[in-house]
Amino acid sequence: MAENLWNTNFHFGDWLTPSVSFNFATGDVDMVQSAIRTMDIVPTCFYAYTTQLMAEIAKVLGKQEDEVYYKELDRHIKEAFVKECMDQSGEIKTQLQGVYVLALKMRLVPEDLRKNAVKKLKK
């Protein structure tokens, strides 16, 4: 486990990732398989999003120390995510649409890699 990633011990990821959970041949939905397949990356996406929200809340409440703390934690999470979960071209190691959507929405993909990540998502 890399520091600042939420990817150890048992937990579920996204239980409704369409490209994993739906079997087009049978019409069955396997939500457990989806949750297991994405458990190494989805929790980190929500961890980063939570730190971003906490920084915004601290700012509104005038808690400058807390705002700085959460912004710094968010920066560390993003750096760890890029180092462990992405390659230099902007591709995410877990090649699933839902993972790309979460990583992009939750601002884990740096500006210089966003264009390529969006292109991969569209593909």
Score class of each variant (00 low, 15 high):
Glu72Leu: 14
Pro18Lys: 05
Leu53Ser: 15
Leu61Cys: 11
Pro110Trp: 12
Asn116Asp: 14
Glu65Ile: 04
Val109Gln: 08
Val29Thr: 07
Met106His: 07
Leu104Phe: 06
Glu67Asp: 14
Asp74Arg: 11
Lys105Phe: 00
Phe81His: 02
Val101Lys: 10
Met86Arg: 11
Ala80Arg: 06
Leu16Asn: 12
Gly62Ala: 04
Gln64Lys: 11
Gly27Val: 09
Asp14Ser: 08
Ile57Trp: 12
Thr50Met: 11
Lys83Asn: 10
Arg75Asp: 15
Gln52Ser: 01
Glu111Gln: 15
Thr50Ala: 15
Lys119Asn: 14
Trp6Val: 03
Lys63Thr: 00
Gln88Ala: 11
Phe22Val: 08
Lys59Val: 05
Thr50Tyr: 06
Thr8Tyr: 00
Val60Lys: 12
Pro43His: 09
Val99Ile: 06
Val101Cys: 13
Thr44Tyr: 03
Trp15Glu: 04
Thr44Asn: 00
Tyr47Cys: 03
Thr94Lys: 04
Phe12Val: 01
Cys45Gln: 04
Met31Ser: 00
Phe22Ser: 05
Val118Leu: 15
Lys93Asn: 14
Arg114Gly: 02
Ile36Arg: 02
Ser89Pro: 09
Trp15His: 03
Leu102Glu: 02
Thr94Asp: 01
Val82Trp: 04
Gln97His: 13
Met54Asp: 13
Asn23His: 10
Gly62Asn: 05
Ser89Lys: 09
Ala117Glu: 06
Leu61Lys: 15
Tyr47Arg: 07
Asp87Val: 06
Tyr69Gln: 15
Ala80Asp: 03
Asp74Thr: 06
Asp112Ile: 12
Tyr49Thr: 05
Ala25Pro: 10
Lys78Leu: 01
Gly13Tyr: 06
Thr26Leu: 07
Tyr70Met: 07
Gly90Tyr: 04
Ser34Leu: 01
Val20Asp: 05
Lys93Thr: 11
Asp14Arg: 03
Lys123Arg: 13
Val99Arg: 03
Met86Trp: 14
Lys122Phe: 15
Val60Met: 08
Glu65Thr: 09
Glu79Leu: 11
Lys59Tyr: 02
Val32Thr: 02
Met1Cys: 08
Phe24Glu: 12
Ala35Leu: 06
Pro18Phe: 09
Glu3Trp: 07
Arg114Tyr: 10
Thr17Arg: 07
Gly27Ala: 08
Asp87Ala: 08
Lys83Ser: 10
Gly13Asn: 05
Phe81Leu: 04
Tyr47Asp: 02
Met54Gln: 10
Lys83Gln: 02
Ile57Asp: 13
Thr94Tyr: 02
Pro18Glu: 07
Leu96Ile: 07
Ala25Gln: 12
Ala35Gly: 01
Phe24Ser: 14
His76Trp: 04
Val29Tyr: 00
Asp74Asn: 14
Arg107Phe: 03
Asp28Ser: 11
Trp6Gln: 01
Met31His: 02
Leu61Ile: 11
Gln97Ser: 13
Tyr70His: 10
